[in-house]
Amino acid sequence: MSTTAEAIDTNTGNLRAADFDGERAFEGTLGDITTREPRMECRAVNVWYDANHAIREVSLDIGKHEVVAMIGPSGCGKSTFLRCLNRMNDTIPAARVTGSIKLDGREVLDRGIDVVPLRAQVGMVFQKPNPFPKSIYENIAYGPRIHGLVNHKSELDELVETSLKRAGLWNEVKDRLGQPGTGLSGGQQQRLCIARTIAVSPEVILMDEPCSALDPIATAVIEELIAELKQDYSIAIVTHSMQQAARVSERTAYFHLGDLLEVGATAQIFEDPQHHLTRAYVTGRFG
């Protein structure tokens, strides 16, 4: 059975059970996975959770000063892929990763590579805001302290201030830095987590559905923040919301049941997707 032929046939957008049975052979990614100035290069990444093949042969570049959005129906593996980029999957004993991920030309997946500096370079913001049960100040200061990035209290104060400013939180919290971070609102908490990530001066920031637990106004603030942050950082964002992907990203990757089906400039993906499933997804037939 030729799936390629079928894919062309069904460009009209009719979905069938076979599209979702999860057992299809990999058929390759449509579009250009590479970018002009790559910071991270992923090639043929596979992830297994025990016997479950969660990510299949995914290849994708993340460029400097760009936002790459990863979209797709739930359970399609986009979060799993994101967690590979700074090896957060290491915390799950059953997870097994193969393939190659390079950060500035250095292999990340090598057993010998040290995750501590890697994660200092590739920061991550999670789906649910997870501030530490400490003061706002201590939340930001935690990263610089453990890495020894600052030597004096004054430097640390400065770093906390710049990080909060860049996360757009400074004006809201500057008078209550000593209060617990858990007392902030959801949107503020998430910006606190972003500020916490920025404070360690990473090169790449991974965002795993950073707005899914937030209200629309808080979401808009975060999206603005992302637009600003891309001046200095490479950002990979997993999102459930196609509008968000369209608003914030330069490039978009569509994941489907563990496969990366299609990558392209965001405008092209939303206006002229090549794969029928991408089209079905972006036009809202399923998701």
């Binding site: 501590v116 890495h147 020894g148 990035l149 090169e203």
Partner: peptide, 13 residues
């Protein structure tokens, strides 16, 4: 660069 500081601290940590 921050990453150099991080790398330098690794042994102690």
């Amino acid at each position: 660069r921050p990453i150099d500081i991080v790398n330098a601290s690794l042994k102690r940590r």
